[in-house]
Amino acid sequence: MTITVSMTVNGEERSGVCEERTLLVTFLRETLRLTGTHVGCDTSQCGACVVHLDGDSVKACTILAVQAAGRDVTTIEGIADGDTLHPMQQAFHENHGLQCGFCTPGMIMSALDLLKHNPSPTEREIRDHLEGNFCRCTGYHNIVRSIAAAADMMAPGEG
């Protein structure tokens, strides 16, 4: 059965028609055409689909779109300020924190949630936090370096 689902996405009220069994990631990509959120494994393991739901990082492949109805969703498309990259995006750019780039949206959304709870994480804490984000290029070293750099950039009183 089709239903109409409404939620706030990247600060805008959005609604679309889907099924009750439609996943949030499918709704974002195919209904709202926000294709920055990726589907890697579709089994809640790889983290390519990480978005923020009411401020918490979650795997959009393991949430129904209808569960997010009336809630606040932020995707990778929603973090830059116009043409100015978010510091986390800028840090990935400057530190070559991506190879093929497929995992990058999830890495960035996951990393932002880490810094929300732990603004100056150690390398160990960054690596532990990324447990649910896979980079099949195995480019973890520069991803960890990017997140550390972003933490420095985002620290109070810093750039």
């Binding site: 990480v50 979650v58 795997k59 393991t62 949430i63 996951s110 936090h129 649910g132 984000n133």
Partner: peptide
């Protein structure tokens, strides 16, 4: 349990 995103749900 699981990973950070799993623990958020």
């Amino acid at each position: 349990i699981g990973d950070f995103q799993v623990r958020n749900r």
